[in-house]
Write a protein that binds this DNA or RNA. Structure first.
Length: 416
DNA sequence: TCTGGGGTCCTAGGACCC
DNA sequence: TCTGGGGTCCTAGGACCC
């Protein structure tokens, strides 16, 4: 049996932790640049604020209903997430952190399951203060469905739902819309509706040949899982296979130099993460986009992959590749709104045998180590390349909560 | 004025090799 | 005049996730 544990409205719940007056009030969290809504408390959902809603369109809704609005505070959410995961990991030797707010546990051999789930829930609530939901079932996909039921019926489920009989499995699948099955997105849902499939149960009744033909083996695995046969294993956490840094800009950028500065900075950020996980990279993808909302007809988006002749984690070398790529795809007289850098095609730094002739500059290694040490110590990117100047690109974060748990100067004060 | 960011996996088709 | 067949590797694009 597998459990899928999910933090309820995670980012909104994190903001509430340090501001209990917000309990029972609508709370939303905005994306970078305060662009759109990326998390909502139940109260905010009930106001009809959709996921991804542009913040400016809902300004009046926020005011009218006194919605507490926050700029995304990712360091805080990351820290709270770790605390939750540390507790969950004690409930099974085989656990998988699936996302910042979700975790799978292998609960083979554990009884009674419902009580086990209830205890997890109580402990996370008591020790961290974040509400969670627990779904337990014979496969990961069914556990996802069980979790949905736990959330949908909080009173009856008390936040925990177990699918442990054929009867409960069928009942759950007849209730669950096929659109809401884990792994079925908008495209597949449309195809399935056209084939008169509306519930998850309908989907399990489709001939395998149809599923294979229309949804590849991904769909076939999903079908198996919903029928109760495990087809998606627990994954051991590994290093990232790609590392991306991408941003929308606070305004439109025209000049090459401005864009070069951004691309260079993005590459540095990604390279720091690359070194932190002990990888070297052989490929750099750069992409740029104009503003599609402003001028749809002249919309321009392009990307390019630049290969390195040798694996490297040197910011200096990677920036050179990225800027060369940017040169190749940059067009004059456009208003760029977004850009990004993706590092991919990694090898392990420890396992890599240097080539006889073509190698990353060995001097860079020490330099990067020194830079990383300094920057980690200060928690900010104190040391950077000369042509990088983040200060001219102000990210809008007008409603940022404090770094309550990661900065000693921002601890919560309690007066007695 | 203001519309997110960071990931994974699978497949088809082209290039290339023998 | 006749113009194979099988394998691998690579890449772009599509689909999905939170």
């Amino acid at each position: 049996m597998y459990a899928l544990i999910d933090c309820n409205n995670f980012y909104a719940s994190c903001e509430r932790l340090f501001n209990p007056t917000l309990n029972n009030c609508p709370v939303v969290v905005l994306s970078n640049n305060d662009g759109c809504v990326i998390a909502r408390s139940n109260e905010a959902k009930r106001l009809g604020i959709p996921m991804g809603a542009p913040a400016f369109e809902y300004r009046y809704t926020f005011e009218r209903h006194r919605v507490a609005v926050f700029s995304a505070n990712f360091p805080l959410y990351g820290d709270i997430s770790q605390r939750v995961m540390n507790i969950l990991a004690t409930y099974s030797p085989n656990w998988e952190v699936y996302s910042i707010d979700e975790c799978f546990l292998d609960l083979s051999g554990i009884e009674p399951l419902r009580e086990y789930g209830l205890e997890m829930r109580a402990r996370v609530n008591r020790w961290v203060g974040i509400p969670i939901s627990v779904g337990i079932a014979p496969t990961k996909t069914l556990a996802k469905a069980a979790n949905r039921i736990a959330k949908k019926f909080p009173n009856r489920s008390e936040g925990v739902h177990v699918i442990d009989s054929e009867e409960l499995r069928v009942k759950a699948l007849k209730w669950l819309l096929v659109d809401d099955v884990w792994g079925i997105g908008r495209r597949y849902a449309k195809k399935l509706h056209a084939a008169a499939v509306h519930t998850a149960y309908d989907f399990t009744q489709l001939p395998e040949s149809w599923v294979l033909k229309n949804m590849t083996i991904v769909g076939l695995r999903l079908q198996k899982e919903l029928r109760g046969i495990p087809a998606i294993e627990m994954e051991i956490p590994e290093k990232r296979q790609s590392i991306a840094t991408t941003r929308s800009f606070d305004r439109d950028y025209r000049g090459f130099d401005e864009l070069r500065e951004r691309v260079s900075t993005f590459t540095s950020i990604a390279a720091e993460k690359l070194r932190a996980q002990g990888s070297l990279c052989r490929r750099v993808v750069v992409f740029i986009e104009t503003n599609r909302f402003k001028d749809e007809t002249n919309f321009y988006a392009n990307r390019i992959t630049v290969k390195s002749p040798f694996p490297t984690s040197s910011t200096l070398e990677l920036v050179n590749y990225a800027v060369a790529g940017l040169k190749a795809i940059f067009l004059e007289n456009r208003e760029y709104k977004r850009a990004g850098v993706v590092l991919m095609d990694f090898v392990d730094a420890n396992e890599y045998q240097p080539d006889l002739f073509l190698n990353s500059n060995p001097k860079h290694k020490k330099l990067m180590e020194a830079i990383d040490t300094l920057n980690n110590k200060h928690g900010k990117r104190l040391v950077r390349l000369a042509n990088q100047d983040a200060s001219i690109h102000k990210m809008r974060q007008e409603r940022l909560s404090k770094a309550y748990t990661t900065d000693i100067n921002q601890l919560l004060e309690v007066r007695v």
